[in-house]
């Protein structure tokens, strides 16, 4: 069954065409990476899927249900969870309160203690999130989405700005997630992408350039050209 279908999404900001006719379809349990240079429209696409931004045209389906006009909280209750590219936490609250808010609304079957112990953060529970290190906050960004017990998880550059060690930790966290969860991940780090993804969608200038398995994408000269041409320091390594 298709967990997520994005059909012919267009988005204009004023005269700027940020997304043009983007269609993506993701199977349940799939790990899909979305890659593309800065400004390609990846975050905008996530915002449209989660409902924070409304598309200029096109449709979104979650488990076959049309959600194009539903508000973000409705979509979340259908099992859609997401993280943000820039940390978006309840920074003046403790870690435990953050997790509490995430679990409460979703009537999560998880237990807060088990959950935080599982991810090794139980001893940090009473610290205000803004007092945690950047790497830990980035981890909380992911934990909040996981505490929702989502069926579909949108991850917007979860390892952005992290040290290699922290990156490895986040990668392990994501790899360890149950296969029943469908994951879409935006990521610039190609090691993470090739390590995780079943399939990769390449977005360029607001259009889907190609969609294929990691091996095929890696071999495409056009993809290499875009990455090496426009984002030399940050693209493929």
């Amino acid at each position: 069954m298709k967990a997520l279908e994005v059909k012919n999404i267009c988005k204009n900001f004023g005269g700027l065409k940020v997304l043009q006719n983007v269609s993506i379809s993701v199977e349940t349990g799939e790990r899909r990476a979305i890659i593309g240079p800065n400004g390609a429209g990846k975050t905008t696409l996530f915002n449209i899927i989660s409902g924070i931004t409304t598309a200029s045209s096109g449709e979104i389906f979650i488990f076959g249900k049309k959600v194009t006009t539903l508000s973000p909280y409705h979509r979340a209750r259908l099992g859609l969870g997401r993280t943000f590219q820039k940390n978006n936490l309840f920074s003046d609250m403790s870690l435990l309160e953050n997790i509490y808010l995430a679990m409460r609304i979703n009537k999560s079957p998880l237990n807060m203690q088990d959950f935080l112990q599982q991810w090794g953060m139980w001893n940090r529970r009473n610290i205000k999130v803004k007092k945690l290190s950047y790497g830990e906050q980035r981890q909380v960004e992911l934990l909040l989405a996981l505490a929702q017990a989502p069926k579909i998880l949108l991850l917007d550059e979860p390892t952005a700005g992290m040290s290699p060690v922290e990156k490895g930790l986040i990668l392990q966290m994501i790899k360890g997630l149950d296969r029943s969860i469908t994951i879409l991940i935006i990521e610039h780090d190609m090691e993470v992408v090739f390590n995780l993804a079943d399939r990769i969608t390449v977005l360029h200038l607001g259009q889907v350039l190609c969609e294929a398995t990691p091996e095929i994408v890696k071999a495409k000269p056009r993809v290499q050209e875009i990455y090496l041409g426009t984002t030399g320091e940050e693209g493929w390594h």
Partner: peptide, 9 residues
């Protein structure tokens, strides 16, 4: 925005 993403109205 985070509250909405979590499912709060």
């Amino acid at each position: 925005s985070r509250m909405q993403a979590l499912g709060y109205n």
